Amino acid sequence: MARLTFRQAREEDHAPIVAAIRTWWGGTRTPDEARELSLLLPRLFLQHFAATSLILEGADAPAGAGSRAAGGGPAGPGHESGGAAGAAPGGVGAVGAAVDGGATGVAAGVAGNLPPARSGGGHPGGARPAGPAADGALWVDESAAAGLHAAGGLRTADAGDRPGRPLAGFLIGFHSPDRPGTAYIHFVGVHPGLRQHGIARALYGRFFARATSARRPEVRAIVSPANKPSIAFHHAMGFVPDGGDYESDGVPVHRDYDGPGHDRISFRRLLSGAPAVAG
C-alpha cells in the first residue's frame, strides 16, 4: 500500500497547484481553457486562506522511480497529459468533468470517490486496506499511486530542508469572515491516477472536521447546473440545494447567480457536532 499524507497548504503551493490545474484538466480542455481555469485560483487564496486549505502528498519515490522538477511544478516542460480529476472554483470544486468558471466542482472521476473508504490499522510494512488511518494519512493501492512518480509528475513546494513531494490532491476553502457560522469550499483537485480511491471524500471530510472544530456548523459550495458529476457528488456528501429561481433536472438553480448567463446551484450542508455561532 502507498501512504498519502495531509497537511495544511502554504503560499508556496500556489505554483504547483496552478500547474496541476493546467495538467489534470488537460485531457478535457484545450491548453487555453486549462489556463483560464487556473485563473480561478489566484495566489491570494494561498496568501489568506492557507490555514483552512489542504494538500495531500505522496511519499518520496523509490530510487529510479520517476523524476522531480526543482521547486515543484511539472517535471517535464509542456506536460499537459492526464484527465480531469479535480474540482474547479467559482463554486465548489467537487465533481465534474465540465467545471464552469466561477462554479465549484470536483472534476471527472470524483464521482468514483463516493463509496466510503475502508479504515485501516497496522504499519506501513504490513498489508492494509485502502482508506484513512488513525494518524490522518490515507492509504491507496501502490498501482494507483505509481502515477505520482511518473516523469512529468507534479511536486508540492519545498518545506525548509525537506524537498517537495508528489502532489496527490488539494482543497482550497475558507471560513467566512462575514458569516461566523459558515465555511466555504472553493476549489478541489485530485490526481487523475487516484480516481475512485476516496480522495475527494477524504478531503471534504477533513475540511468538515476542521469546520466543526472552528464552530462552523454550515459548509457551502457553488456548482454549475451543467456539472452533473459535481451535483451528484455533493448530494452524496450530504449537501442540499439552497433555494433557486427555476429547476434543472429537478435541482433548484439560481439564475444569473454569478452574473448574466452564469446560473449556479447553491449547496449547503449542516454539520453535526458543530455548535451554532451567533452572527
Rank of each mutant, 00 (worst) to 15 (best):
A133Q: 09
G72M: 10
A127M: 10
A34P: 01
S67A: 07
P116N: 00
A144G: 01
F6L: 13
D141Q: 10
R7V: 01
I55Y: 06
A2W: 00
A69H: 07
H234T: 03
G126N: 12
G136M: 06
A15T: 01
G131Y: 01
E33L: 11
A200Q: 09
D258G: 02
A133Y: 05
D245F: 14
G173E: 04
L54H: 06
D161R: 09
G112A: 13
I172M: 10
A61F: 12
P229G: 07
G73A: 14
A151H: 15
G72I: 09
A94P: 12
R10I: 00
H14L: 04
M1L: 08
G83R: 15
L271D: 02
I231H: 02
P163G: 01
A274V: 07
R268F: 10
R10G: 04
L167D: 02
A133C: 05
A146I: 00
L154P: 04
A274M: 04
F233Q: 03
D60A: 12
P132Q: 08
L44E: 13
E247A: 13
R10K: 10
G101W: 14
G83M: 15
G147K: 10
V92H: 13
L138A: 03
L203M: 12
D242E: 13
G90Q: 12
E12C: 06
H262E: 02
G244I: 07
A97D: 03
A20P: 05
T28F: 08
G198S: 04
G102P: 06
F187P: 00
A236S: 08
Y204C: 09
H123A: 10
S266A: 12
P132M: 08
V95A: 11
P77N: 12
E57W: 10
F233C: 13
L167V: 02
G82F: 14
A97V: 13
P62T: 04
P129M: 01
D242L: 11
A202H: 07
G160K: 05
E218K: 11
A84V: 13
W25F: 11
R220E: 06
A221Q: 02
P124D: 14
P89D: 00
L171E: 08
S272E: 12
D60R: 12
G122Y: 02
P42C: 01
I17T: 05
A108G: 09
L194C: 06
R162I: 11
Y246F: 15
V99W: 07
R29N: 09
P225M: 04
A209D: 14
S230C: 06
V240K: 04
V106P: 13
V18C: 06
E247H: 15
D60P: 15
G244W: 08
A2H: 00
A127N: 10
G125A: 10
G86S: 11
F207G: 05
A137T: 10
A278K: 11
V223I: 01
I265Y: 03
P132Y: 03
A108H: 03
A111D: 05
L40F: 09
G121M: 01
G261V: 03
D178N: 14
E80K: 15
P180T: 00
Y246H: 15
A70Y: 10
A117F: 00
E218I: 14
R255V: 00
D141M: 06
G101Y: 14
L154C: 06
P177A: 08
E142H: 11
G279E: 14
